[in-house]
Every structure is written in C-alpha cells, then in structure tokens.
C-alpha cells in the first residue's frame, strides 16, 4: 500500500487547492469577458477583431505552458519514477490539446478578416500545428499499451523529445520571415509590451482564467486517474483472491 502514500497526500493538497482555483477561474473569466467584449476599445487598425486576441493569445500561451509542464512532469517520472508525475502529465495532455485547438481555430478566424487567409504555412502556424500532433501523439501512446507503465514511459519520452518544438514556436517569428507578427508581450528583452493598457486588462484576466482552468482540470484529472488506479489494484486483488 505504500505506493498510494504519495497519491493520498497529493489528494489532500489537490482538494485544498480545487475550490480556490475554481473561484479564481470564475472571477477572472467574468472580468476578462466583460473587459474583452464590452469595456476595451477597438484597435486603431484592426477594429473589433482585436477582441479575438483575448482568447487567441492566452490560449496560445497556455498551449506552450501546458506542454512545458507536461515535459517537466515526464522528466520527473522518467528519472525518479514518481507515480503522481505520470498522472499529472497524462491529465495535462487533453487540456493542452484543447488550448492548441482553440489557438489554431481562433487564429484562423482572426487571420481571414485581417490577413486575408484562414491559414498559411509559415513557421509559426506550422510549428503550432505540430504541437497539436505532439499532444495527440502523447495521448495515443499513453493509452496504446496493455502494460500501463510501458505506455507511460513511451509517452513521457515523446513529451521530452517533442519539447524542442516549444522554443521553435516561441522564436519562429524572430528567426524567420513569417506572416504572423512578432510577440506583443515580452517580459524580458528591450521590446517590452506593444499593447495599450486598456487592452492588457482583458488579456491578462483571460490568461489568469485559462491558467486557473488548467490547474482545475488537471487536478480533477489526476484525482480521476488515482481513483482509476486504486480501482484497478482492487480488481486485481479480487481476482487473485
């Protein structure tokens, strides 16, 4: 039973965090939607379509963030065999894939009216599409083996190898000519923030909402995985008498 010692402690922590992450999610979502759709001004060039930014940009940030979290968890799992790290990576994958799908579709919906094209094969858009395939590949691998541990190992390896795509996505707009414009928010470096303050409120509120959404769904996902794992051992104990 010592195998469950860690998950049990983890469950206590997760259950303590969950109500808070739900509260942060609901509050910042409300602020983000009201500011994003109503209170923030239209852009001087792009008019009302700039409102797409308040879902597109935070979703894209989260797509990269969740993948990085998944890669870190996979590293911890591969090296230290920590069972909760495996569950965290498994629970993160669908959330990251969802954010990537949102990033790609809202990007198309923004690109058509502003650029004149739903899709172009420039370095930014292509590397983002590869990220979606990495998420889907992770989920497929994690569930492909009868031996669960082998699935975990193979998927963790893919998550680590695929991480090289993250800096490529991030810097694609600086390294190569792309139709996609460079980053507007650069916490480090000399370029700073190229977005007016009135538009930063909904942008950061939505970013916080999406982060809280990730924390919430991931914790629920881990709780689910722990319950399923316990049920599997119990069934096994039943069969073995």
């Amino acid at each position: 039973m010592h195998r469950f010692a860690n998950p049990t402690r983890f469950l206590r922590i997760a259950n303590a965090i969950l109500p808070w992450s739900v509260a942060v999610m609901v509050l910042s979502l409300a602020v983000g939607l009201v500011h994003g759709l109503v209170l923030s001004p239209p852009d001087y060039q792009q008019g009302e379509t700039v409102r797409i930014m308040y879902v597109h940009v935070p979703a894209s940030w989260m797509a990269l963030f969740v993948y990085t979290a998944m890669a870190v968890a996979s590293f911890v799992y591969l090296v230290w065999k920590h069972p909760v790290a495996d569950l965290a990576a498994r629970a993160s994958a669908p959330v990251g894939a969802a954010f990537t799908v949102i990033s790609l579709t809202t990007g198309a919906l923004w690109g058509k009216p502003m650029w004149g094209a739903w899709w172009v094969w420039d370095a930014r858009l292509t590397s983002m599409l590869i990220l979606l395939f990495l998420y889907l590949g992770y989920m497929a691998l994690a569930g492909a083996f009868d031996d669960r541990q082998r699935g975990s190992k193979a998927a963790a390896l893919l998550a680590l190898v695929g991480w090289v795509n993250i800096p490529i996505i991030k810097f694609s707009v600086d390294w190569w000519n792309t139709l996609h414009q460079p980053a507007s928010v650069n916490p480090v470096g000399d370029s700073g923030i190229a977005i007016d303050g009135s538009m930063l409120v909904p942008l950061f509120a939505m970013a916080l909402a999406f982060k809280a959404y990730y924390v919430t769904t991931m914790l629920m996902g881990i709780r689910r995985e722990i319950a399923a794992a316990k049920a599997r051992t119990l069934r096994l104990a039943e069969v073995q008498g």
Binding site: D43, Y44, W115, P182, A194, M199
Partner: peptide, 9 residues
C-alpha cells in the same frame, strides 16, 4: 501583415 502593436484609435 500587421505588426504586434495594439492600441485604441
């Protein structure tokens, strides 16, 4: 191709 700047008119 637009740039990364967003601001009200």
């Amino acid at each position: 191709k637009h740039d990364e700047t967003y601001m009200p008119k």
